[in-house]
Design a protein around this nucleic acid. Structure first.
Lengths: 334, 334
DNA sequence: AGCTTCTACGTCAACGTTGACGTAGGACGA
DNA sequence: TCGTCCTACGTCAACGTTGACGTAGAAGCT
């Protein structure tokens, strides 16, 4: 029925035979390398269309040792934060003609290393990682092997790495400024008990901004970064500072736990205590009262990560981290 | 420093030279094809370890036309449902030595086809799809091309496809039985306005179970499957049936919208109106009151999908859809 | 005219693996 | 003793593409 077509996929040779040129010329056209006339290009592209030619990624990869993919390693997909970043990465990657490989490290550096080695076999153009652990030292071998890598929200000193961070110090600062601005004078922070101050920029920003406003020893309570942890932490904070009038939480999930604890005690928001979370997840508009938050732009992070990766591949080097700005979203809770 | 090692990755030839056999024998050992002695195997594996040999997936794929990957196409990652399935797919795939390719169709069949063609270039063992549209006809060419495909929650008649469905009819039934059991007599359903009855098994189950309980014309209200849609739909339902005493919602996000509408009107849950959602997302324990729901086991879906894919690749054919059971999770709202 | 340069191709080998097939040597049966 | 079968290898080509290099002919300069 289809005379020139067998059940095998068309190859460069098939296209070349149809047009009457060499396979090498077809290759040049397909990859837009130059070195061909406009006339040849049109004929080749027409034949490509007609035969439904698709380059064989394996043959290509065998030679180029590259695969036009982007490896994206997220920490988990349970937190809605990462799926949104992943979606942005996919869009940006597609726009650049790349396919996304996704993996989840489940907060386990060993698993992360294993996953990266797996993905490395597919020779991605580069890797975008939210490291499993607070430091990213386990990524050093990867970088030493020359893999273009974008490391997000984690410090790592390596001249081949591009660092991308949200302005989390700014998040702490903005939250405090907003709370002070609405009249609060005794703010406390609920933060992640997995981090210490040096690796907790939100806390750094919070404390600095409090000091700047004349509050020298602001209260910081640590608890697990979950809803349950938020309830616990809130209870503890109320014991330590019974007359507190504002809460800034490490993330929205904790903030919601805090709100539950406040509601259970009959404490009104925002009149008695104003609450501000961090991340701005979709959930915030579904709880009562709706939760104010410092929005971290996941879409922008995803886009920026792919952009940085492209720059790395093109040989650029980055001395300074790239910072993605944050923004306060004011709702009922504060 | 490393005499036998250059900066190139080790190949079969390198391993073979070290052991003193032919590359073909090393290949046999690496792929566990048989046809070698125990002694040879041990020596080869030791050399593999020593040289850090990794098979070149491109050379392999060039010959075998297979790539030890699984393509997973989700509808969106905004809904926490899909990330959880994706995570389960990743785990199951890894356990089978496969890497996951992830893509999101954004409810767009054309995008879906394009993504699948992209991924097909990487010659995955098979594809797991949550189709973008209510029917999966746009997947037919893919299947005709012989790609092993698991189609989830969508009907499609093709002898090469394996269908995997949650027991959504059962979900509607279980919800009604529970509501009747707790004394409700005037239930209504809020469903997705993108679907009609024939492609909405939840609604089918709901209606059938109502009839079975002697409620012949149960109310079904359609609205967008979002929180906002839930509020709208709830308002509409209260106009149509002012004395309704139970709500079954298409999913939890809609149910939460409905709860907001009820709260705003001072209607108590579950005393005045009992509410049951569907999916059982994590959010359900964070809202007030906590939301009862019919749990769809995402982990099991992911696992089962990979298992079915394996069976397809091994040549098995499936005439009947595989059904994943659902389960009622009773909380405060109903 | 003679030289250089440039354009638009073509030729050829190599990438690392596996499928198809060949074979030496031992075991085994008649 | 001969033939057969089996085990444990080895040999060779092919997969489809791109990098390196070669070249005919036209164009441009002196």
């Amino acid at each position: 029925m289809n005379p020139p077509e067998s059940n095998r996929a068309a190859t460069l040779r098939d296209v070349a035979a149809l047009v009457g040129v060499s396979p090498r010329t077809v290759s040049r056209v397909v990859n837009d390398e130059g070195g061909f006339s406009d006339e040849t290009r049109d004929k080749v592209l027409e034949a490509v269309e007609q035969l439904g030619y698709r380059p064989n990624v394996f043959a290509r990869g065998l030679i180029t040792r590259r695969s036009r993919t982007v490896a994206f390693v997220a920490t988990t997909l349970d937190d809605p934060f990462f799926p949104e970043v992943a979606q942005a990465v996919q869009r940006a990657a597609r726009a650049a003609g790349l396919t996304m490989l996704l993996a989840v490290n489940e907060h386990d550096p060993e698993l992360e290393v294993e996953l990266l080695e797996q993905m490395e076999m597919y020779a991605p153009e580069g890797v975008i990682v939210f490291p499993a652990a607070g430091d990213a030292e386990h990524l050093r071998p990867l970088l030493d092997r020359g893999v273009a890598t974008v490391v997000v929200d984690t410090p790592l000193d390596h001249d081949r790495a591009a660092l991308l961070v949200s302005d989390l110090v700014g998040a702490g600062r903005i939250a405090v400024e907003h709370l002070i601005g609405r009249g609060c004078r005794r703010p406390a922070m609920l933060t992640n008990d997995q981090l210490d101050v040096s690796s907790d920029p939100r806390q750094q920003g919070f404390v600095a901004a409090c000091r700047h406003a004349g509050i020298d020893e602001p209260t910081v309570v640590k608890a697990p970064a979950t809803t349950h942890g938020g309830r616990q932490g809130m209870a503890l904070a109320l014991e330590v500072v019974p007359d507190l009038d504002a809460i800034f939480a490490y993330n929205d999930v904790m903030a919601i736990g805090a709100m539950q604890a406040l509601t259970a005690r009959g404490i009104r928001m925002p009149d008695d205590v104003a609450v501000i979370g961090c991340d701005d997840i979709a959930l915030n508009t579904m709880v009562t009262p709706t939760l104010s938050s410092v929005r971290i732009d996941r879409k922008q992070i995803g886009q920026e990560a792919v952009r940085l990766l492209g720059a790395l591949v093109d040989g650029r080097r980055f001395d300074e981290p790239t910072v993605v700005p944050v923004e306060l979203v004011s709702r009922q809770s504060g």
